[in-house]
Amino acid sequence: MIIQTKALKLIKIYSTICDKFEKDLKYSCERFSNNTKQDLTDQEIMTIYLFSVAEEQRFTVKQIHQFACDYLLSWFPNLGSYAGFSNRLNRLSEAFRNLTASLLEDYFPKDCYVNQSLLDSMPIIVCSGKRKEKVATDITDKGYCSTKSLYYYGVKLHALAFRRNNKIPFPEEIQIAPASVNDLTVFKEAWANKENRCFFGDKIYVNKDFFGDLENEKNSIMMTPIKGVKGECQENKNRDKAANDLFSTAVSRVRQPIESFFNWLIQKTDIQRASKVRSTKGLLVHLFGKIAATYINLTF
């Protein structure tokens, strides 16, 4: 049994999932076989996952299934075995992806600066770089995280988020790329068509030629901390140091909330650690299911 306040949240999550399932999610996991009607529905599986992550901080599939067995069996009597639950959950990877996009679209805050975007990425670690990669090799590879001084196998979670005043930014789009892919490459492929936008990023986005063309063609600019020029004489460095430091501090202060956004995700869902994942679909459920769990409370 669970307390009444959490029971009401469980009902609300289930109601939201059912509404969105009938609208479009069902097309992401439609079955064309004689076994289309299951005792435990896809809506119930998604509800169990989202509720367990959002309200109970159960982050692995085994923990989620065990919690459901202990406390939610009266709500979901056809829960079944852990193996069956895990297999059914992985089949819903695309439904979780579409649910995340739907939640971000439906509950867009009114206080966003729609002409100002913050950019950053976060490593999702499947295993250490010292080990051999065996899981989700079609979307993961080896990368290096400079902030952690760590080589790892996994993916990067890239976020383009609208700036908000004194609040965590709200993600406009989220992209997944192999760990070795450069952040600037992702920007060029996914977000270089944004018009009339002021982007705030870190030094990895420094590329005067590309962003000069972007400003001329799309009226969009990239603001980054000043990056030193290799081979520049010391006199020029000293002359421009004060102005460059002030500008870099101002840009860093504006883009700092995107780091808080990632820290918030980690704290709420432990999304950065994906060592328990055993398949590509499982990794996608881990990513988009955790993000959906953090934003499902917007429905309350």
Rank of each mutant, 00 (worst) to 15 (best):
F85K: 01
R58V: 00
G228F: 08
L118M: 10
K134S: 12
P225K: 02
K276W: 15
S74T: 09
F211A: 07
V135A: 09
S146R: 06
H158Y: 12
N182F: 12
D209M: 10
Y152K: 01
R197M: 15
F21P: 06
G282W: 02
M122N: 06
F210K: 02
K276N: 15
E172N: 03
K26Y: 12
M223A: 11
L287P: 00
A161K: 00
D209H: 11
S93E: 03
S15I: 08
G201W: 03
F170V: 03
N34G: 14
S180M: 06
A101I: 05
W264N: 15
S117E: 05
N219Y: 05
K26M: 13
D270L: 06
S220D: 04
I125M: 07
K134C: 09
A250Y: 15
K268C: 15
F59L: 10
F32M: 05
Y49A: 07
L214V: 11
A101S: 11
S149V: 08
A243I: 14
S220W: 07
Q63C: 09
K37D: 09
V155S: 06
A179V: 02
N90M: 08
D270Q: 13
I168W: 05
Q4K: 10
Q63M: 10
V114T: 14
K62F: 11
N219W: 03
C112L: 06
A136T: 02
A159W: 01
G201H: 08
E22D: 14
T249L: 14
F21K: 00
L119G: 02
W191L: 07
Q57N: 15
K194C: 05
D240G: 04
I226W: 07
F162W: 11
D70C: 12
L265F: 11
A95R: 00
A293Y: 00
I226F: 14
V114D: 06
Y205D: 07
I271T: 05
S15F: 13
D19I: 04
E217P: 07
A136M: 05
Y151R: 00
G228H: 07
A293M: 01
K241T: 08
I3T: 09
L298R: 05
E195N: 03
A136S: 08
F162I: 00
D111S: 11
Y82N: 04
F200C: 04
Y153V: 00
L184D: 03
V114K: 13
K62P: 00
